[in-house]
Amino acid sequence: MSLVEISGLEKSYRVGEMEVPVLKGIELEIEEGEFVALMGPSGCGKSTLMNILGCLDRPSKGRVLLKGRDLSRLSDRDLARIRREEIGFVFQSFNLIGRISNLMNVELPMTIKETARNARSDRARELLESVGLGHRLDYSPSNLSGGERQRVAIARALANDPSIILADEPTGNLDERSTTEIMEIMYELNVGGRTIIMVTHDVETTKDCSRMVWMRDGMVQEVTS
């Protein structure tokens, strides 16, 4: 059994009276431990696919199995639990909460999971140290550079020790140096055993990937290793 099994996945959005198809029958399997780069022209449906994989959205048609579970059959509550415990999401625009400290941002998934307070802050501290931000615990994310913010976001994604990292253009807003730093962290996470699925436009960032999936117009066009 693959970690992710996608077959006949369709997703369409209703815009006014019209059904606009975005994903038009995706077929894809991803094995545990892979580092997959998802590429394709803007608007081809990469983020849409990531959102479905990340349990933020539901398929319109077809099957998405995550560790054998059919996502379209799970309740909202179960989907939230998967987001919380099995998936770490890294966004292009970081999506940190500006009015609380970095430490609390990283703690948040554990707070929601109701992890004990001490264990929570110990782990958050550890994670921030591991991404090189041990000296920025009490800063607000809004006082950090883009690269630093993305590192906080990665630390947060790892809070509940998920086995899958979904990263939607994690370096899309970053300069070259920060991009290199983030990709190093990603690589290490993959080496550490986590499955990573990453959307990117930058071929440079795919050098460590085990596979590249090319999408076009809502379909998987080509898979290269």
Binding site: A80, K113, R156
Partner: peptide
């Protein structure tokens, strides 16, 4: 946005 973040990282309704 913040509520969206909370939900994305696993908060339920």
């Amino acid at each position: 946005h913040e509520i969206g973040v909370m939900k994305a990282i696993g908060a339920t309704t």
